[in-house]
Amino acid sequence: MTLLEAAGTSVSDRLSVTGTANALELRGVSKLFGALAALSDIDLIVKPGERRAVLGSNGAGKTTLFNCITGDFAPTTGSIRFFGEEVAAFPAQERIRRGLRRTYQISLLFSGLSVLDNVYLACCGVSRGRFSFVRPRRNDALMASAENLVHVVHLDDVRDTKVSDLSYGQQRQLEIAMALSGAPRFILFDEPAAGLSPTERQELIEILTGLPSHMGYIIIEHDMDVALRVAESVTMMHNGQIFKEGKPAEIEEDEEVQALYLGGEEGLGHG
């Protein structure tokens, strides 16, 4: 079965590009849906280990940006470099195997499987074990890391529960656990805090701030309070374009931003 697996780059290859390169480097990325330009000419650079928040009104193109980065669909034009390697032509799974992860705004989980099986599947996906015909043993390393991730997102109590029986907040937690599987180098979180209770939100912030410092991420977040606590820089999007980048404090005080975004929509400050 190993023949079916496309060969990944070797570790030394990866290290050589990792040294100096940006975690993510987008140049001129555009995405057209028919006549609608969901993204137009996006340039974006994120350094290794950097934590970035992306803000923008509904339909600004944030999720589309994630979809282009992960390969859920191909950008119409543009170049995407992941730790120095051009990945725009790669299928999604090749990007994932290079250490990119994501969560989905609307949970995409395996509703017929248990919580642990969902995370276990995520752990297998980036390992050679994914074609294994042998059931996991009790001391299986992948199963152990899946159990550990379930623990990290506080889902121990519902470990063997079917995903369809979980609460909304628990499903969001599970999304996070799946994005943390394997050895991620960079993670894209698509509105992980949306719809969470204040307690769940607090737990989420603790998980995010507790990630190892080399693990950079981009988080899409409507709630400024959350965004400011988990990110060190902010990118503002509007109509498929980036119109502001900077430190959280600068963004908050920027008049243009306030006019367009913070003042424009009610209740955003409180989620």
């Binding site: 079916l4 697996e5 496309a6 992960t70 390969g71 859920d72 299928p91 999604a92 799974q93 994932i96 195997r97 994501r102 989905y104 995409l108 989980l109 395996f110 509703s111 017929g112 499987l113 099986d117 276990y120 599947l121 995520a122 297998c124 996906g125 980036v126 074990g129 994914r130 074609f131 294994s132 015909f133 042998v134 059931r135 996991p136 992948l142 799946m178 599987s181 394997g182």
Partner: peptide, 27 residues
């Protein structure tokens, strides 16, 4: 086993499986 679980994953949600690192068609 992982192969069978992944196959059911591919049935339910091929896009998500690709986003977990699986080569859906190879599976």
């Amino acid at each position: 086993a992982p192969f069978g679980l992944a196959l059911q994953g591919v049935r339910d949600n091929p896009r998500r499986m690709a986003a977990l690192g699986y080569n859906v068609n190879a599976h």
